[in-house]
Amino acid sequence: MSKYQLPDSPTIYDFLVMSLTSKDLIATFNWDPFLVQAIGRAMRYTDNISQVAFLHGNVAVGFCEEDNIMGNVGMVCNCGKPLSPMKLLYPIKDKDYSSDIAINKSWKTLSNALEQAYMVTIFGYSAPKSDVEAVAMMKKAWGSIDDRKLEEIELIDIRDEEEVIDSWSKFIHTHHYSYHTSFFDSTLAKCPRRTCEATFDRLMNCIWLDGDKGFKENMNFPAIDKLTYKLIEEERKTKGTKKWLSNPYH
């Protein structure tokens, strides 16, 4: 699996990575190397890349227990040794999320992010019965829905809406959710790199958004670059300051 390669043209992985910044977190159960490859491609345009948590391990990711460093598998660590491949967790009912340091670190990263999150997008994850413990850990970090009255849940799934909502009902406060069957209908695609800013403006400041300014399914890399380079430049200029980023999607 580690030898698999993304095609030369943009994929959903590329659009996903380019839609987010370092304030965000991608938490994935996937073992495949495609997300890691997409991050590498995005770094041709910016180093303001989303954090990543590999909840079941990943074939392209390595870890050094001595220095507590995670990176591309085989990369030389500060200690001079190559990063060892992450352990992979298999789809069985009882998974051990705590004994492996790298996987436990990924779960702590997700828990911290969920506790502070304003917006959570759940992309194609059905919360299967084999992942009961995983969902329980996420729920513990998210807390009571009565304490998350302003937060938004965005769901991207090809299943029937009612079935999807039922899967995540313990995370959704009343009507604070949106449902899409395509990534390109989501806030990530329609408002890349400013998802929270745009969502806050839409819901709290009652500002109408223009849904045609974001990513389109047939975009190539030059088109993605053209759409995002001004946003990336603004991020660079405001880094380390308390200035709010602009919302160009209205």
Rank of each mutant, 00 (worst) to 15 (best):
D100F: 07
D100A: 08
D100T: 07
D100V: 08
D100W: 10
D100Q: 11
I101L: 14
I101Q: 13
A102R: 12
A102E: 05
I103C: 04
I103A: 02
I103F: 02
N104C: 12
N104I: 05
N104W: 11
N104Q: 12
K105E: 10
K105H: 06
K105A: 04
K105C: 01
K105I: 01
K105D: 09
S106D: 15
S106W: 06
W107E: 04
W107N: 01
K108D: 11
K108H: 07
K108Y: 06
T109H: 12
T109V: 15
L110E: 01
L110A: 01
N112R: 06
A113L: 01
L114W: 11
L114K: 06
L114V: 01
L114C: 05
E115S: 06
E115I: 00
Q116C: 05
Q116T: 06
A117Y: 07
A117H: 09
Y118V: 03
M119Q: 04
M119D: 03
V120W: 02
I122M: 05
I122C: 11
I122K: 05
F123S: 12
F123A: 15
F123D: 12
F123C: 14
G124Y: 08
G124P: 11
Y125A: 10
Y125C: 08
S126Y: 07
S126Q: 11
A127P: 11
P128Y: 03
K129N: 13
K129V: 02
S130W: 01
S130D: 14
S130I: 14
D131R: 02
D131Q: 03
D131G: 02
V132Q: 14
V132G: 05
V132L: 11
V132C: 08
V132W: 03
E133L: 07
E133R: 03
A134T: 00
A134L: 00
V135K: 15
V135C: 10
V135E: 09
A136S: 14
A136G: 01
M138K: 03
K139E: 06
K139M: 05
K139D: 00
K140I: 02
A141Q: 05
A141T: 07
W142H: 06
W142K: 08
G143K: 07
S144E: 15
I145Y: 09
D146G: 10
D146C: 02
D146V: 08
D147N: 14
D147Y: 06
R148Y: 02
R148F: 02
K149V: 15
L150I: 04
E151G: 09
E152L: 09
I153R: 12
I153H: 14
L155S: 08
L155A: 09
L155E: 07
D157T: 08
D157L: 04
I158A: 04
I158S: 11
R159S: 14
R159I: 04
R159N: 11
D160I: 10
D160H: 12
D160F: 10
E161N: 09
E162F: 01
E162N: 07
E162T: 04
E163P: 03
E163W: 04
E163Y: 06
V164Y: 10
V164N: 03
V164P: 07
D166K: 11
D166T: 02
D166N: 13
D166R: 11
W168P: 00
W168V: 01
S169P: 03
S169H: 14
S169A: 13
K170Q: 10
K170G: 01
K170P: 00
F171M: 15
F171W: 13
F171K: 11
I172Q: 10
I172R: 07
I172C: 12
I172D: 12
H173K: 08
H173F: 15
H175L: 05
H175P: 00
H175A: 07
